[in-house]
Design a protein around this nucleic acid. Structure first.
Lengths: 235, 235
DNA sequence: CAAGATTAAACTGTCGACAATCGACGCTTA
DNA sequence: TAAGCGTCGATTGTCGACAGTTTAATCTTG
C-alpha cells in the first residue's frame, strides 16, 4: 500500500515540519481512498514507507485524531474513522448551518475582487460539468464553497469547513460519482452566488440550504443503496 | 509552575491512555490560567513534572494544537495560543451560529427528561447568582449551554462547542469576573429555555442571539478596558 | 556606554530500543 | 468436530540518547 507516488520518499519536501508533511500525506491517503474506513494505520509500516521513525508518524496521527479522520484505540492503534449513515447526516446538517453563516458574512465582505473570484470559479464549474470527470467536479465544487468561507474572513469558520469537507471527501471518494446531473448542480451554484451578490440574508440561507440539501439527499441515497459503503477493510 | 496538585504525580490515574491524561492536564492548566497565553510549553519541563518522558507530552501537545489551544512553532516549540480581540469576536460569532442551531435541534428532540434537566440547571444558575463566585457562575453557565448541545444530539456539534468554550474559558479566566449583573443573565437563560420549550425556531434564534450577544459585548468591553489582557508571558 | 560578535546553555526533532500487550494460529481435549 | 487453551509473532507505549538549532549570556569593540 504505497502512500506516495515518488519513489524517492518525501526527502525532497522534508526541509521543515516533518509532522505536518506526514499529516498531509495521511490525509491525502484517506480522502483518496488508499486508506479505507476501518483500516488499521500501522505506525511502523507508515514510518518504514516514508523512511522515518515512528515518533513523527504518531504525532501526525494525533493531529488527524483530533480532526476526526482517525480514531485512537489505546493499545490497539489508530484506525481510519468509520462513517455511518448518521454521521453523514450530522456532517451535512452542520455544514448547512456553517455555510449559511459563512455566505451571509461573505456577502457583507464582498468586494469586486472576491465577487469576480467566485464568478470565475462558477465558470470553471460549468466547464467541468461537460467533462465526464466526477472527481474533478467534486474538487471544483469544494473550491467554490471554500472560497465563500475564505471571504467570510473567519479562520475558525474556514477550519471547521475544511474539517467537515475532509470527512465528506472520504465518503464521496468511495461513492465515486456524486452528481446525477452536473449541469443542474452548476446552476444552483449560480443561484447561490446571485443571492450573495444581492446580499439578503434570508435568500442566501434559503439558497444555500437548498443547494447543500440537494447534495445531502444525493449522498444519502447513494449511501443507502450500498449496504455498508463506508466500511472498507474487513477486519 | 506546578501543573498538578497531588504530590504523587499522575501515577494514580495512569492506568491507560497517558496521552489523554496529559492533554487534560495541559488543557486544565491553560483554562485555569496557570499557563498564560503566549507562554512557552517546555516539553522536558512538563515531562519531568509528571514523571514521564517527552514523547507523550508532544503527542498531547499535538492534540491541543489541532484544538487551537496551542500553536506549534517548528524548531521553537509549543506556545499557548494568544487571543486577540478579533479572535474573541470570531469565537462569539461562531458560537452564536452554532448554538442557535443546537437550540433549534434541541427543541425538536426535547423530552420531559431533558426539559427537566435544563430547568434544574437554570435553578442552579439562579442560586449561584446570589453567591459571589464568578468562576462558579461561568462554570454553571457553560454547563447549561453544553446541555443544549448534548440534547441536540450531534457529536460534532458538541465537540465544536467544547472547542469554542475552551478557548473562551481561557480568556474569561484571565478577566476574572464576567457578569455585571448575574441575576439579569440568569433571566435571559430562562427566556432561552422558554423559547426552546415553545419550539418556534425564530424565537429560539432571537433569544440565543440576544443572550450570547450580551456576553459577547460584556467580554469585548472588558478586553478593551485592559490594554493587552490575553497576552501574558512577555517573552 | 551601546551595539554587535561569540560562546555556552537549553531545547527541539528524530531516532532506535525494550518491555508490555494484543491477536492469530495451532494444539489439546472432550 | 468444535470449543478451550497456550504459544508466538506483530504492534503499541514509553523511554533515553544524540545531533542540530535556538535562545540567553558573556565578551569584545567602536
Amino acid at each position: 500500500m504505497r502512500l506516495i507516488t515518488p519513489p524517492v520518499g518525501l526527502t525532497a519536501l522534508a526541509d521543515t515540519d516533518l509532522v505536518g508533511q506526514v499529516a498531509r500525506i495521511l490525509t491525502q491517503a484517506i480522502i483518496s481512498g488508499q486508506l479505507l474506513p476501518g483500516a488499521k494505520v500501522v505506525e511502523a509500516g507508515i514510518a518504514r514507507e516514508l523512511g522515518i521513525s515512528r515518533a513523527p508518524v504518531r504525532e501526525a496521527a494525533r493531529l488527524l485524531e483530533r480532526q476526526g479522520l482517525l480514531v485512537a484505540n489505546p493499545r490497539r492503534g489508530f484506525f481510519v474513522r468509520r462513517l455511518e449513515a448518521a454521521d453523514i447526516d450530522e456532517i451535512y446538517d452542520l455544514r448547512i448551518c456553517v455555510e449559511c453563516h459563512a455566505a451571509v458574512l461573505a456577502a457583507q465582505n464582498l468586494t469586486p475582487q472576491t465577487r469576480d473570484m467566485l464568478r470565475r470559479q462558477i465558470a470553471v464549474l460549468q466547464e467541468t460539468a461537460d467533462l465526464d470527470d466526477p472527481a474533478r467536479q467534486v474538487e471544483e465544487d469544494y473550491k467554490f464553497h471554500r472560497m465563500i468561507c475564505e471571504i467570510a474572513g473567519s479562520k475558525r469558520l474556514l477550519r471547521l469547513f475544511d474539517d467537515l469537507a475532509s470527512e465528506l471527501r472520504m465518503v464521496i471518494g468511495l461513492i465515486g460519482r456524486l452528481y446525477d446531473d452536473p449541469h443542474r448542480i452548476a446552476e444552483t451554484h449560480i443561484a447561490v452566488l446571485d443571492a450573495i451578490e444581492q446580499g439578503d440574508p434570508d435568500i442566501i440561507v434559503a439558497r444555500i440550504d437548498y443547494h447543500i440539501g440537494a447534495a445531502w439527499r444525493e449522498v444519502a441515497k447513494l449511501v443507502r443503496d450500498i449496504p455498508s459503503p463506508t466500511n472498507g477493510a474487513s477486519h
